[in-house]
């Protein structure tokens, strides 16, 4: 835990975590990369499986997306690392975070295995009458790994650690919570994990706004 605390206490990361705008902007960039470059990963995998873009040779699909996927991957990982390290204490006990990291290391293993077998000699794949089994396997596994990353990434926000839920750091914000009816408590913030300090206050303000609005109507 102390390592996690040391990481997130780095001044720059503390500022980042507490900033009202930079944090969500980085998160939105992370997601935009998922959309743009994740889409390319999906299309490459589906081409290898013989499902999408079947009019195009495999070599062409692999070649044309390669550079963009690499650029996207770098941006995505940089943004993700910022998000995770600034909240290191919350992420370190989170099993979904570690599951996501495992899936990410599988990306490297997948590349190490299938690059020489599939991706580096796509011309050979074009020549064979049917898509070879190893290419389909590469596509299927990649699809599985990336869906795993996506799912775990999303679930990170839903895991509540018993310790951090009651830690003094979150108490002041909790004390400000306006009493709410059960219906409002149901509301979830999928991004709650990433929210601390000023944003907690903001959220409470909004709840209050919701409440007072309802009372006046």
């Amino acid at each position: 835990m102390s390592i996690a605390n040391a990481i997130q206490s780095i001044a720059f990361l503390t500022d980042f975590r507490e900033s009202v705008w930079v944090y969500p902007v980085v998160m939105a960039i992370h997601l935009s990369c998922i959309a743009v470059f994740g889409g390319m990963i999906l299309m490459t995998d589906l081409r290898l499986l013989g499902v999408a873009m079947t009019d195009r040779p495999i070599s062409e699909v692999i070649a044309k997306f390669r550079i963009w996927k690499r650029i996207g991957f770098c941006i995505m990982v940089t943004m993700g690392a910022l998000l995770a390290s600034s909240e290191a204490e919350k992420y370190s006990p989170n099993p979904f975070f570690w599951a996501k990291m495992c899936f990410l290391s599988l990306v490297a293993i997948h590349a190490a295995i299938f690059r020489p077998l599939v991706y580096n000699n796509p011309a050979e794949l074009d020549k064979s009458p049917a898509i070879p089994g190893r290419a389909k396997l590469a596509g299927a596994l990649s699809l599985f790994i990336w869906l795993g990353i996506l799912t775990c990434g999303r679930l990170i926000g839903y895991y509540e650690d018993a310790q951090s839920a009651g830690s003094p750091a979150t108490k002041p914000a909790a004390a400000l919570t306006v009493p709410v009816s059960p219906a409002i408590v149901v509301q979830r913030s999928p991004l709650r994990l990433g929210i601390s300090g000023p944003r907690d206050l903001q959220e409470n303000k909004r709840k209050h706004y919701v409440l007072s609005n309802r009372e006046s109507s």
Binding site: L31, I34, A35, V36, F37, G38, G39, M40, L42, M43, F65, L147, L150, T151, R154, L155, G157, Y158, R188, P190
Partner: peptide, 22 residues
């Protein structure tokens, strides 16, 4: 259910926005 739907949502825009971006 909520997180599952969110994953579908993200997968959905990876397909749509991803292909449009290409």
């Amino acid at each position: 259910i909520f997180p599952t739907l969110e994953c579908m949502h993200i997968l959905g825009f990876a397909f749509s926005v991803g292909t449009i971006a290409i």
